[in-house]
């Protein structure tokens, strides 16, 4: 626990120092990373802590983004806009989740995919409101009570604060009864039911919370990007976020955030050299799946256990079993 607090403080320091060392472009990029990290963590929650693999999570992101875009001109209060985004996406997650969760694992994946694509199609087809495929401008100034925030550093601070808040919320959630119980359900659903838990309620609570967070990320994106297009709801985007989760590591909170950082960085870096980023991304994913060992966060753990293993070996001590297995593989 102490170690976690230490890491958290180090992170705060880095987040504080970054704006002073980065260019405006860099600051902008890191702001986007914070938003995507929130989004990826929300998906990481249902994937890694509840065993629900969704390919439609961008649907909630899109709801958040379009809520800001569509209501922005009518509601000048940023807090209200954020609140509406969270409520709408959470409500939608609650209603759709109640239906989706009854189905089996593959069905859930396919249905969520169709659901995200439905919102994509609606954003595309309801041209009179959304501007269709061309997307729409967001005219909602971000104002949190101390003046309009337009400077890159201002935006950066808001996104960093949002990220920290969401991270803490998630941390509290996974330690809470519902968080522990839903993880128990992921491991052994039949037994949880026999112990007296209504498993659907717990899955639904988690899914709703996750959907609301994705909506929150989407609304931040609306404020950040000042432009939204149907692509924010497409299943391809859902898949990319799933990539971030996998790159970082399923089953941890911070892993997906790290994955989001790496993904956005690579995307921007490679896109400056070639238009063929999708091919490279697809190929990277294939390679990651074939040779990756559970994502970056687990590589760290692996590395650490290896170092400790060597130390322990020298002191002629007991070595954990899984490390031995890794040694054989290599």
């Amino acid at each position: 626990m102490k170690k976690n607090i230490l890491i958290f403080i180090v992170f705060l320091l880095i987040a504080f120092v970054l704006p002073f060392v980065l260019s405006v472009y860099g600051i902008d990029l890191v702001s986007e990373i914070f938003i995507m990290a929130i989004f990826a963590m929300s998906l990481g929650l249902i994937m890694g802590y509840a065993g629900m693999v969704s390919l439609g999570h961008a649907g909630f992101f899109g709801i958040g983004a379009y809520t800001v875009a569509l209501l922005g001109p009518h509601i000048p209060n940023s807090y209200l806009l954020l609140f509406f985004s969270i409520c709408l996406s959470g409500l939608l997650a609650l209603v759709t989740g109640a239906i989706f969760i009854r189905t089996s694992k593959f069905y859930f994946l396919m249905i969520t995919l169709a659901f995200g694509q439905l919102l994509f199609a609606l954003a595309w087809q309801l041209k009179q409101w959304t501007g269709g495929a061309d997307g729409m401008k967001v005219s909602a100034p971000l104002n949190l009570g101390f003046g309009e925030i337009v400077s890159p550093i201002g935006i950066y601070s808001v996104m960093a604060a949002a990220f920290i808040i969401v991270y803490l919320l998630l941390r509290f959630f996974v330690e809470s009864p519902v968080g522990k119980i839903v993880k128990g359900i992921m491991e052994n659903e039949a037994r949880m039911s026999a112990l007296g838990y209504d498993v659907r309620i717990y899955k639904l609570l988690t899914y709703t919370f996750s959907g609301a967070l994705a909506g929150f990320a989407g609304s931040l994106y609306g404020f950040y990007n000042l432009f939204v297009s149907p692509d924010v709801s497409s299943w391809m985007f859902s898949g990319q976020v799933m990539m971030m989760v996998i790159i970082g590591g399923v089953g941890t909170l911070i892993g997906p955030a790290i994955g989001a950082g790496l993904f956005i960085f690579l995307q921007n870096f490679i896109s400056t050299y070639t238009e063929r980023w999708p091919i490279i991304m697809g190929a990277l994913l294939v390679i990651l799946v074939l040779v990756g060992k559970g994502g970056i966060i687990h590589w760290f753990a692996l590395l650490k256990s290896k170092i400790f293993y060597k130390k322990r070996k020298n002191s002629d001590d007991y070595a954990p079993q899984h490390v031995e297995k890794e040694e054989v593989v290599n």
Partner: peptide, 26 residues
Amino acid sequence: FIRQIYGKELEQVLLTFGLAFVIADT
């Protein structure tokens, strides 16, 4: 590809997703 990871369902989904990107963009 798929043969390499029989039985790992999430990985297979991701693999086909990656291939979808590669093929569509090609």
